[in-house]
Computed example of a mutant assay.
Amino acid sequence: MKLELCEVADGEYGLKSLSPFCEKAHRALYFHKLDYIRNHTGRPSGHKQYNPAGQVPVLLIDGQPVPDSTAILIRLEELSDKTLLPADPAECGEAWTWEEFGDSVIAQYIPVARWLDERHWPLNKHYYSQGVPKPLKSFIENLVRKNVGKAYAKRDVLKQGMDAAWAEFERHLDNLEARVPATGFWMGDALTVADIGLFSCIQELRIPTTPWHRDRINERVTLAGWLDRVDAATADKH
């Protein structure tokens, strides 16, 4: 069986990818101990032949595409003797709910923090002009930022403005800090899709290119400790 993960460029700071959804796929593949190769493009649309939506990741299984990170988690359960799903149906449902919370709630803050927050844009803009001739870099960076700003202005995350978005982000962190276990993993002693899904989104904001968010996360010491445990259990050591 040949597994090929279609994604965007390499990550940094201990992350395989700067996309939370690609990072989720990497962590799950490592947990399941499945060998795979990586297929990079500069933009998600570079893999559009495998996913008409032009989004990543896409996992090719013997050439057959499985788009969407959650669908990849489901498919990996069929390919491995290991599992990220609790045996109890109620706990399994809760684990998937937390995985979705990462995708639909936490992930929305990542592009806002990187592209639209004035404190962080200078630390991130070079990612969007890699390979572009120097005279065009500033133009491309500003164009990307303008388009992202236009798209996110219509979304709930920025409906009340940037300050309100970050106040809401901190409320989410407080709620997660109140819920996270002091030992073990999100649902108990074993890793689940809840850990993989939440970690992949929160950890993307816990890096030097988003220092305000990194510091707010690390202030929640129980949450930070859980992130470190998930990282240690799912990071590719190679």
Rank of each mutant, 00 (worst) to 15 (best):
E23Q: 15
H120R: 04
Y127K: 12
V230Q: 04
K24Q: 13
G14K: 11
V112A: 05
F139Y: 14
Y13C: 10
S19A: 13
M187N: 10
L34G: 05
D215G: 01
D236I: 12
A233W: 06
D236R: 14
P65I: 04
D195M: 09
T234K: 06
V58Q: 01
I106H: 01
V56A: 00
C6W: 00
E177W: 04
L205N: 08
L3F: 14
R179I: 08
F169L: 11
T41A: 13
Y50A: 03
Q130M: 14
L191W: 07
D156C: 04
G149E: 02
H47K: 05
R216F: 00
S129C: 15
F139R: 13
Y128V: 15
T234L: 13
P208F: 06
G14V: 12
Q160A: 15
S45K: 10
G42W: 07
A153S: 15
R171W: 05
T183W: 04
A107P: 04
D189C: 08
R43I: 11
I106W: 01
N218M: 10
K150N: 10
K24V: 07
P133K: 11
G102Q: 03
L84Q: 04
P57D: 03
A167R: 13
W121H: 02
D236T: 08
A190S: 13
A95N: 11
E141S: 08
R206M: 11
R179E: 14
P111H: 10
A153C: 10
A194I: 01
L123E: 10
E12H: 14
G225S: 11
D117V: 11
V105H: 12
S45V: 08
V66L: 10
G54P: 06
C201Y: 02
K237L: 13
A164G: 03
D174V: 10
K146S: 15
H40F: 12
Q203I: 13
L59T: 00
W212M: 11
Q64D: 13
I202A: 00
L79Q: 09
E204A: 15
W212N: 05
G184D: 08
N51W: 01
K154E: 14
K150L: 10
F185K: 04
P122Q: 10
P44F: 02
P20R: 08
L173F: 02
L18P: 00
G184Q: 09
Y127R: 14
G225H: 05
A182G: 15
G46T: 01
E12W: 12
P133W: 12
G54S: 09
E7N: 01
A182M: 11
E168N: 11
